Amino acid sequence: MSDQLKISAEKRSEFGKGAARRIRRAHKIPAVLYGHGTDPVHVTLPGHETLLALRHSNAVLTLDVEGDEHLALAKDVQRDPIKRSIEHVDLVIVLKGEKVTVDVAVHVEGEAAPETVVTLENNTLTVEAEATHIPASFVVSVEGLTAGTQIHADAVELPEGVTLVTDGEILVVNVTQAISEEALEAELAEAEAEAGIEHDEPEDEAAASDEAGEATASDEATGEEKSEEA
């Protein structure tokens, strides 16, 4: 379920890229708090505490904004694509008992039958849950499942109080027969042939072919010499 951590936030009046860079240099994070008909409040969050609190998606925080407390759901977390540090957070005010719609990750556990391949076709499910009771993830077991088995969204076990929003017919997990190495190579060769792809002859085979050609030419020359002598 969602973690509820208390974090102190400071209101900010500076905006724009320059202000955001200054905030990050101070090891803090710019954020905006909105929802329930209130005007957006731009705040600054402590960097380390926020990073720990937002380790998991759909984190719910108790936000202390200069003495005013709000229960807030981290709706959008923007990260640096390389450093993975948090650059900005959108926080939505929620109320205890209020239901929210969120995307929750799906994880697969267990070992399917031998010579099968397990594919996670959809790694999240959209559900409706109480803001303070959002599941951290859904677990789907594939233990012993045979090729041809398919698990759809409506077959995923949900905790009490959580309602599926995603179409129940959506395929989540697909168990298929593993293809043999020989069959895979044959399919690849056929696809390359259709695409007109030709491979250079390996050096050792090319050398052997050259040697064979030279030997044949030598034999023919020897034969011609013997014929002339005769």
Results as ranks from 00 to 15, higher is better:
residue 171 L to M: 13
residue 172 V to C: 07
residue 211 E to K: 14
residue 201 E to F: 00
residue 93 I to D: 04
residue 52 L to E: 12
residue 81 P to Q: 09
residue 218 S to V: 13
residue 16 G to A: 10
residue 24 R to W: 01
residue 62 T to L: 15
residue 204 D to P: 12
residue 61 L to Y: 04
residue 26 A to P: 00
residue 119 T to C: 04
residue 15 F to E: 03
residue 230 A to P: 00
residue 171 L to S: 09
residue 197 I to G: 08
residue 158 L to H: 03
residue 201 E to M: 15
residue 135 P to A: 10
residue 142 V to H: 11
residue 15 F to D: 05
residue 144 G to Y: 09
residue 83 K to L: 12
residue 60 V to H: 05
residue 5 L to C: 01
residue 25 R to Q: 15
residue 56 H to V: 08
residue 187 E to W: 00
residue 228 E to L: 15
residue 37 G to M: 02
residue 92 V to S: 07
residue 74 A to G: 02
residue 28 K to C: 06
residue 109 E to A: 05
residue 89 V to P: 02
residue 214 E to M: 09
residue 137 S to Q: 12
residue 70 H to E: 06
residue 195 A to C: 05
residue 80 D to F: 01
residue 203 E to F: 09
residue 200 D to Q: 12
residue 133 H to I: 00
residue 30 P to E: 07
residue 152 H to C: 06
residue 96 K to D: 08
residue 156 V to F: 08
residue 65 V to C: 08
residue 208 A to I: 04
residue 17 K to E: 13
residue 165 V to D: 04
residue 80 D to C: 06
residue 85 S to Q: 14
residue 28 K to F: 01
residue 6 K to V: 07
residue 57 S to W: 01
residue 151 I to N: 03
residue 97 G to W: 05
residue 43 V to S: 07
residue 149 T to V: 10
residue 228 E to T: 13
residue 71 L to K: 07
residue 172 V to W: 03
residue 25 R to E: 14
residue 109 E to M: 04
residue 121 E to L: 05
residue 144 G to P: 00
residue 50 T to E: 02
residue 114 P to F: 10
residue 98 E to I: 00
residue 57 S to P: 00
residue 124 T to K: 12
residue 179 I to S: 11
residue 38 T to H: 12
residue 141 S to W: 06
residue 21 R to H: 11
residue 110 G to D: 08
residue 145 L to H: 11
residue 105 A to Y: 00
residue 11 K to T: 14
residue 188 L to M: 11
residue 91 L to E: 01
residue 117 V to G: 04
residue 20 A to H: 06
residue 188 L to N: 07
residue 95 L to Q: 14
residue 101 T to F: 00
residue 20 A to G: 10
residue 100 V to C: 09
residue 116 T to R: 07
residue 114 P to K: 11
residue 80 D to S: 09
residue 135 P to Q: 07
residue 77 V to G: 09
residue 155 A to N: 06
residue 1 M to H: 04
residue 120 L to W: 02
residue 70 H to Y: 15
residue 151 I to H: 04
residue 192 E to Q: 15
residue 177 Q to S: 15
residue 106 V to S: 02
residue 112 A to E: 09
residue 15 F to R: 08
residue 168 G to C: 11
residue 162 V to F: 03
residue 84 R to Q: 15
residue 136 A to R: 14
residue 29 I to L: 10
residue 130 E to H: 10
residue 29 I to W: 03
residue 83 K to P: 00
residue 39 D to W: 01
residue 83 K to Q: 12
residue 21 R to N: 13
residue 179 I to R: 12
residue 141 S to H: 10
residue 58 N to K: 06
residue 190 E to W: 02
residue 64 D to C: 10
residue 229 E to H: 11
residue 168 G to N: 06
residue 99 K to R: 14
residue 65 V to A: 07
residue 109 E to P: 01
residue 100 V to K: 09
residue 207 A to D: 12
residue 34 Y to G: 10
residue 144 G to H: 13
residue 125 L to A: 02
residue 78 Q to F: 11
residue 36 H to P: 08
residue 102 V to F: 01
residue 204 D to T: 12
residue 16 G to R: 10
residue 143 E to L: 03
residue 54 L to C: 05
residue 155 A to V: 01
residue 139 V to L: 14
residue 4 Q to P: 01
residue 177 Q to V: 10
residue 73 L to F: 05
residue 2 S to Y: 00
residue 85 S to N: 15
residue 117 V to Q: 06
residue 49 E to C: 01
